[in-house]
């Protein structure tokens, strides 16, 4: 079975509570894959300019249902790492296994099917401003060709989860920054993806709103979704004892227990 035949937008997403990815028609989800790490980086190299690699032999394993911060100074490669996961970038060398499949070797026409299993949230929200809140969220399900009634139900649920219940008819452009980011989160979760990637999602928000949004991602994580949250905001990292993946000069340092030590103090190294 070729990797690029595996992802699809059809099929039952959940069965008996266990996650089932969206697979192409006729493909079956291996139960064995359910026990594999959701994400594995094996000796991944990526550079935009010769002699200045962004990632130099990065190795990383993310287990299913984890919440991990990705941090590092500006230009360290946080966004690049996330972009490689939804194949907006491709690795120069190495393997990136998503649910056991090497996404670096996906053919172009299989990329949409990979993306249906990943929700992405950006600092700049990336909402279509002249669409309504409902349309901005529903687009994820319309692409999957779900029936309109089901789309309405699931969008309503997603908006309720992000605290925007009853706001579906409002144009996205009239919302505040925090509300727009909630719409973007609703769009990312409405398809019940295996993995949520958040690329500096609080970068445009004030500190209190940033903490609220972090809380929202944690609630999503509690439902069993794996979350990778990229930020360079140290105050957020200090808030919760989540695993921290530090990127610097192309190398990954893994701080598995976060910045909070067992006695409740904060670590200072290796963050900048």
């Amino acid at each position: 079975m070729a990797y690029d035949d595996d992802f699809d937008g059809s099929g039952d997403r959940r069965e008996g509570g266990a996650f089932r990815p969206m697979l192409r028609q006729g493909k079956r989800f291996s139960q064995e894959a359910a026990h594999r790490p959701i994400l594995v980086f094996e000796d991944v190299f990526k550079s935009y300019r010769a002699g200045r690699p962004v990632l130099r032999g990065a190795n990383l394993v993310i287990e299913r249902g984890e919440f991990a911060f990705v941090t590092g100074p500006s230009g360290a490669g946080k966004s690049t790492l996330l972009r490689m996961l939804y194949r907006a970038e491709n690795a120069d060398e190495g393997r990136i296994l998503f649910m056991g499949k090497d996404i670096a070797r996906l053919k172009d026409d299989s990329i949409p099917f990979l993306r249906r299993n990943i929700g992405v949230v950006f600092q700049q929200f990336k909402l279509v401003e002249n669409w309504s809140v409902f349309e901005n969220v529903a687009v994820t399900l319309e692409v999957l060709r779900l029936p309109e009634k089901l789309v309405r139900t699931r969008v309503g649920e997603a908006l309720e989860r992000v605290g925007l219940s009853g706001r579906g008819e409002e144009p996205a452009r009239v919302l505040s920054g925090g509300e727009q980011q909630r719409v973007a989160i609703a769009r990312a979760i409405v398809g019940e993806p295996a993995l949520i990637l958040a690329d500096e999602p609080t970068g445009n928000l004030d500190p209190q709103l940033a903490i609220d949004i972090l809380g929202l991602f944690e609630e999503i994580h509690e439902q069993g979704t794996t979350v990778l949250f990229a930020t360079h905001d140290r105050t957020l990292l200090e808030q919760r004892p989540h695993r921290i993946i530090v990127l610097d000069e192309g190398k990954i340092t893994d701080v598995r227990r976060g910045l909070v030590t067992e006695d409740g103090n904060f670590l200072s190294a290796p963050l900048h």
Binding site: L127, V139, V143
Partner: peptide, 16 residues
């Protein structure tokens, strides 16, 4: 442009 970026991010095929 944003609409197309969003569609691509949520897994729309080029044909769609």
């Amino acid at each position: 442009k944003t609409e197309i970026e969003v569609l691509k991010l949520v897994g729309a095929t080029d044909a769609y």
